[in-house]
Design a protein around this nucleic acid. Structure first.
Lengths: 228, 228
DNA sequence: ACTCAGATTTAGGGTAGGCTAAATCTGGGA
DNA sequence: TCCCAGATTTAGCCTACCCTAAATCTGAGT
């Protein structure tokens, strides 16, 4: 467990790589070089180079030409960054007048700069929230995370009444659009109609009807409305 | 005025250099390579190299073997960092339970990461304070600063009643010691005795008498107590 | 006016992490 | 089974900063 040592040492770049790889590996699937490159907006060649360094450092497992997976140390570091990122987002919204479309960019920089102490103070004044403003779960300080992945809106059957759980989007303009439809975590709404072949989805939110594309259907994740 | 462009481009390193040079140049005196090196804990050779780059960028004026001065652009950037640093310190003390001995280090990292927007939001919720927790003046967002340099405690005549204005110290242990004497910005106290040749100074703070060394006398700056 | 100690700069080298171009691997379709 | 398109890696290069060691300048004191 040299992760404690590594905390002090990890560079911004490395922290970003680990976070990206975590996000790209649902239940431990391997992430490919090109996926990582795309997410970090770097060339695949650069990613190849960094991947080699990180696997030498023991932060990830690399099978050449096949992909990478985080080691326990790598996962720990990634979850630490995720906690920071999401707590910072929650803090900025709660105390500094940010809205969910503007917090991502700020948190992206702050997550590398705040101390553990500051993160925990923010968590405390927030009352240790379980989710961030987009509904994403906040890992605990000892690295637990409850992936409460709801189902994508695009897979909710027509007629169902559901609740928004998470909005997996970071682009401000898209988030503003989604907010303008009344969709945000915790909001209940009804799926009126869903066309096949990734066709448009008709929803009714707070009495108003909207038709949205399937791309949006992918990022809005919902949970069945148990108490309806 | 390409300073706006530069904002986006300045690296952490450059920001630190400019801030250090500003602090080392009271009323536009030139700062020497070795002073800068000492303050930033770098080798003089490294400073020489960076100084060359920065003067090519137009952020400072360098007369080889003589020293450097900030240009208008450089000064603007330095004051911007000073504003960030001091507002962050004030914010952390006011809202996140920091004490004046612990804020410096945190601010030192955050000042490079926060956006202008966030800085102004912090300023707003703080009510646009004029000074930070150490009594140092906070530059305005358009680069004004009121250097209210009080006189060092070591130069206050015996018998005078004065008020603490600024405590020019960033080391936590020293700040805790100073706080333990009851000295902090705004506190009134009396100089009971002062020995010559940088000798010890006897002060009375809130009815208690302390003897302090002249080194401390340099960092605690005071103002005559007008309304006594 | 000289000299030399100390300050400063230059020379040469290292690491981290980007990039493009070229080489190499992999797997799906003929 | 073979082949080639696309993915991946390697090779070679660049920038930003840092370092130590060596060269050079400056000015204070004789």
């Amino acid at each position: 467990m040299n992760a404690a040592l590594q905390h002090e040492t990890l560079t911004r770049s490395v922290e970003d790589y680990l976070k990206a790889i975590y996000r790209l590996s649902p239940q431990g699937r391997a992430a490919s070089t090109s996926e990582i490159a795309q997410r970090l907006e770097l060339s695949p060649a650069s990613v190849s180079g960094m991947v080699k360094r990180l696997s030498e450092q023991g932060l990830l497992e690399h099978v050449p030409y096949k992909g990478v997976q985080l080691t326990a140390d790598g996962r720990r570091a990634a979850l630490r960054m995720l906690r920071r990122h999401r707590l910072i987002e929650a803090y900025l919204v709660a105390f500094l007048g940010y809205t969910w479309d503007t917090v991502h960019e700020e948190a992206e920089r702050l997550e590398h700069a705040v101390s553990d102490t500051m993160v925990e103070r923010m968590a405390a004044v927030l009352g240790n929230p379980a989710v961030d403003p987009h509904g994403d779960p906040i890992p605990t300080s000892d690295g637990d995370i409850h992936e409460t992945a709801g189902i994508p809106l695009s897979e909710v059957p027509a007629g169902a009444r559901v609740e928004v759980r998470q909005v997996e989007e970071s682009q401000p303009d898209r988030l503003r659009y989604i907010a303008s439809l009344g969709l945000r975590p915790g909001v209940r709404f009804t799926v009126v109609d869903r066309q096949p072949f990734r066709g448009p989805i008709t929803i009714e939110v707070a009495g108003r009807t909207h038709v949205v594309g399937s791309e949006l259907g992918q990022v809005v994740r919902c949970a069945g409305d148990e108490d309806a």
